[in-house]
Design a protein around this nucleic acid. Structure first.
Lengths: 341, 341
DNA sequence: TTGTAGGCGTTATCAG
DNA sequence: CTGATAACGCCTACAA
């Protein structure tokens, strides 16, 4: 099927391309009659402007790129949801790329998006990300750029985050308030800022309550999976049978811990209390229901897009843009895996 | 930051744009020396071809569109994963759009992708989809198009599906084999083909085993949610306390059923057996672990993209393309919510 | 109110 | 081996 072009409309109507172009936009300097004629024919021929040509002319594609570590992940798929919804409202489309938690892949995806000349890039870093040459490249090319969730503090871009440290302190405080004396922490990998901050929060909460920090009680995830939850639960039980509380980096792992304890008929929360992070859907469905920290996901996507849009608009006007950081609120959700309800 | 263009390279090197263009592609009809010079300078200037211009010239954007009902959905996010991964291997990017199970939105998303002139469209229909004017429009414009999972049988496009009816028969047969005499079915909404087929499978399995079909035992989801599982479980218990088996349209709803029965201390599977559909991650994590039908998701994405790619290539060559349908295998997974293991 | 001309950055054709 | 020239389809000064 051949696509209709301005030229065709112009020729069949016996007027110039320019006039057709203007008429389609109902510009004031075209006669009503012409506008009507043009619109009618355009309608009839099913005309849609060739976006490739428009892109080339206007140097923008109304398309943004999104790079996240993993799509199959309750938190991230909710963020995507928020981004796509908000982008749609403003006439933007979203290209989604995954880093699979690999720095190499992440670099490739950034390069792809740069080549594609997307109007802006939204990104949550992979766990491997400990260097940021590729992020600097985005800034160097002055492509609008917003980081969210897992960010690099050193990159001066807009950001949407939560206060991981504060949230972690609150979570651990809950365990302490409910009577836990020996609290273990299953932490995330070494690189991501949020794993570091949650760990720091854990430490600070202990300190505040005059509980000695013991590095032996800290277990470090590599892949942050359900299976690691299983493994660490077993290890904790063997190495520190007197642990009575565990703060886990994220719900997926916490669910693994629960599953292992369920199997071993450990009483939860009587013998051991567990608190997770992120409030995955799954958490309220398992037995016992998992206490956790609710982290806004959809909203994070919305805010991230809006920050990006601000920057895109400012970029178009060539005016200078000062990056902003938006911090969203978290909320402790107490359910059945802790004693304090 | 200004982007480097062919023209710039040509001027600084004192050669023609044409030669630069060819050299960058290392065409055989350019001297080695020139190629080297050009590549070196391009590298130095960080040259990347302007994809907008390339799109316009080549009439393709190496970008496809994907429309799905919901992103926050274990099955679909896995499909997306497969699509993006496979697309990436072949140099394609993916724009993702959600229909939110709304026909109106679905139509808008189709229009968006058509305007965007994506090279092809991948789609799983919304539950509301009972008309296909918008799908016909895709075909009319001869845009490569593949349907997967929730499809319209009437649209002659390539498809990737499972045999829902057969899988449902197998699932219900499992319940019967394990001794269930009165089996209820919580079915999906009225429109989607897969809900219809699973319902038909349920009916056929009963028939095959000389169990009378009773329409009172069929409950119809509207939104296909966890909450509906809760509600229908309650209803079943009240209206038909002697039901001893339930075949549920999908795991999410089945988990709701489980949750309600757990709360009511109904013995599963002793009193009532439950089998779900789709094998969500959640299913193996709850107590009791849910028996279900495993449905390939990642693989479905991969196959769908490859079918689309075939069609895109054929379309480029202007050769005619005959739609193909790929049917993937399902597998019964027996866990703790049924008696037959 | 309408139209002419030039250009966005590439690629393809064809001649030198 | 190299380059001039003409598109691709649209937009926008500027001229008529």
């Amino acid at each position: 099927m051949k696509e209709t072009t301005l030229k065709e409309i112009a020729e069949t109507l016996g007027i110039s391309i320019t006039t057709v172009s203007k008429a389609l936009k109902s510009k004031s300097d075209v006669s009503k009659k012409t506008i009507e004629k043009v619109l009618a024919l355009a309608e009839e021929l099913n005309y849609t402007p060739n976006s490739f040509a428009v892109n080339l002319r206007t140097k923008e594609s109304k398309t943004i790129g999104l790079i996240i570590p993993e799509i199959v992940h309750h938190f991230f798929s909710n963020v995507i949801n928020g981004i796509i919804a908000e982008a749609g409202k403003h006439g933007y489309l979203v290209i989604i790329l995954q880093s699979n938690e690999s720095l190499d892949l992440e670099k490739k995806q950034v390069a792809l998006l740069i080549n594609k000349r997307v109007d802006g890039i939204l990104m949550s870093l992979s766990n491997e990300s400990n260097n940021d040459y590729h992020l600097k490249e985005i800034l160097r090319r002055s492509i609008p750029f917003v980081q969210f969730d897992k960010i690099s503090k050193l990159i001066p871009s807009s950001k949407v985050i939560i206060d991981d440290q504060k949230a972690a302190i609150e979570a651990v405080q809950c365990l302490i308030d409910s009577g836990c004396k020996k609290i273990a922490h299953i932490r995330g990998p070494v690189n991501p800022q949020n794993a570091i901050d949650r760990f720091l929060g854990y430490k600070k909460a202990l300190e505040k309550n005059n509980i000695a920090f013991n590095s032996k009680l800290v277990y470090t995830c590599v892949d942050v999976t359900f299976e690691e939850g299983l493994t660490f639960a077993k290890q904790i039980l063997e190495e520190h049978p007197d642990v009575d509380g565990i703060f886990v980096i994220t719900d997926l792992v916490a669910v693994g811990v629960l599953a292992y304890f369920n199997e071993k008929k450990i009483q939860i929360p009587q013998q051991i209390s567990i608190i997770g992070f992120s409030n995955w859907f799954m958490s309220k469905v398992i037995t016992p229901k998992l206490s956790t920290v609710d982290q806004p996901s959809y909203e994070m996507g919305v805010e991230a897009f809006n920050l990006l849009l601000e920057e895109i608009i400012s970029h178009k006007k060539n005016s200078l843009f000062t990056p902003r950081t938006i911090e969203l609120e978290t909320k402790i959700i107490l359910r059945e895996s802790t004693k304090n309800n």
